[in-house]
Nucleic acid binder design. Structure first.
Lengths: 270, 270
DNA sequence: GTCTCCTGATTTACTCCGACATATTACGGC
DNA sequence: GCCGTAATATGTCGGAGTAAATCAGGAGAC
């Protein structure tokens, strides 16, 4: 019937046919919505993960017992336990018989896990953490650009060129433009031929994605980011390692500056 | 009575009082042993994780159905599912109703997760991957040393001095010495005051730990690593950022060289 | 008299089981 | 060729029983 109309909304598959009981229970608690492809335990993990990342539970806190908490959340123990296993796998909590499930110290958290990163940015982001991420980015990306300039294949260059063109067409104000931005940086990391770099790319890309959203939130971008990207592309394309590293360094610094001023509206960042 | 005698076997706490049925089932499959603090689903996740990391299952492969596989592994469906949730959280697999559980492409794997890293080094390590990790290390650690030189507190310096002293006492041939080595590098990462760095420290530290074991496996260390570390310490202690970065660069390069020659015995590394 | 070590009881997570609900794929009818 | 229907595997549920770690109590040594 109207299934076709729903399809026409394209892109992200909207939550459609849902079980009534479970979602009401979660929605009632103000928690994460559940959609297709998003199982109950996944939504639970999201809910609990954001609660921990937002400081609602601090390291050392011990969660209520399985039976009590599962009942409070209106889910079965199975679903609750599976959610806890997810959090355990990401280093957020640890459970032991008799001792209960307690939140681990922050340094045990896998903060570079893309999902944890998403949880960290679900609420108001920690300004200090964003600064740390950009600092990491300012170390990784110039080095990656240097390696990419030395090792890039024709195919890598083509992908980067396409991404750059897409960035020109749409701008960073559109989702398509931001996706192109991610593709551009991702292509550079991949061109290094280093698996570890590619994995970090997923994390850093996620972080950039979230911070970019915050930039957009406050006002129009004051500066055109295309020339910076073009300089990086030209250097990598020409195989000039030093120039690539330097251009990328400039790009990241400027991005950090933009983000800082956008976010600093609330907090007094120097 | 004889409990004391058991203690005298020292080092690794041997699995002692165990449930009989489960462990026999796992041992029979040649799988991961289960000990205190190691739950059944954790052991299962380890077993399946190593199977995936070792290439026993390749991306795109679909695992047997829940009921069939759980029965084959001699565990309940609950325990099996919880193990799968762990693998899902680390990006190794994804399950969908009717479609089954399939192994995701490598770029989706959270290779920087300490546990995944451990699984990767459980069997014969991939030489290319070790090279990638050292390349990442050669980017991160010098930059971290630079930041540490600028920001280190008195306390940081003290921890580093203690670790260095411990390295001198025990050598890298003992476990205590290797722990001191980890502490030293960890202290540097922490001294940067950057959370993201500290998290990476856990990953890189794990990687270094595993590769160091491989170095030990082949032969005595040909070179004394203390002077390299001492140079780094002196530079950081003196607050000389450039010297710290340079000394750390040398240290990592030499470590890579040692590892390469040790591992290259089998594979023909240039 | 105080402290340490051992032993036990209790609480909690862990594991297992069997059933039902739901989502997705694949087949067959229109 | 499109749409509805049925089959199948994952997802969710609730409860029962097991194993393990912590806390409290008591016996022994200093």
């Amino acid at each position: 019937m109207d299934a076709k109309e729903d399809r026409e909304t394209v892109t992200e598959a909207a939550p459609k046919t849902l079980s009534d009981k479970q979602d009401k229970a979660l929605d009632a608690k103000g928690g994460a919505a559940r959609g297709p492809g998003r199982r109950l335990h996944g939504a639970l993990a999201h809910k609990l993960g954001t609660a921990i990342l937002s400081g609602q539970y601090v390291p050392g806190d011990v969660l209520p017992g399985e039976v009590a908490f599962a009942e409070e959340l209106k889910v079965s123990r199975s679903a609750y336990r599976e959610a806890i296993q997810v959090l355990t796998a990401k280093g957020l909590v640890a459970s032991r018989p008799k001792a209960g499930t307690r939140v681990l110290p922050r340094e045990r958290w896998n903060l570079l896990d893309p999902e944890v990163l998403a949880w960290a940015f679900a609420g108001e982001p920690d300004v200090a953490f964003v600064r740390d991420l950009f600092e990491l980015r300012s170390i990784i990306e110039p080095a990656a650009a240097r390696l990419a300039a030395q090792r890039r294949s024709k195919d890598d260059v083509r992908v980067m060129r396409d991404a750059l063109a897409a960035m020109r067409r749409h701008t960073l104000t559109t989702e398509a433009g931001r996706a192109a931005d991610r593709d551009f940086h991702d292509a550079i990391l991949r061109a290094t031929g280093n698996q570890a770099m590619v994995v970090l790319s997923a994390s850093i890309g996620a972080a950039v994605h979230w911070t970019t959203q915050f930039k957009q939130r406050s006002r129009e971008l004051p500066r055109n980011p295309i020339p910076d990207h073009a300089r990086v592309f030209d250097a990598i394309s020409a195989g000039d390692a030093d120039a690539a590293a330097e251009a990328m360094g400039v790009l990241v610094d400027l991005a950090l500056e933009d983000t800082r001023t956008s976010m600093g509206q609330g907090a007094g960042a120097a």
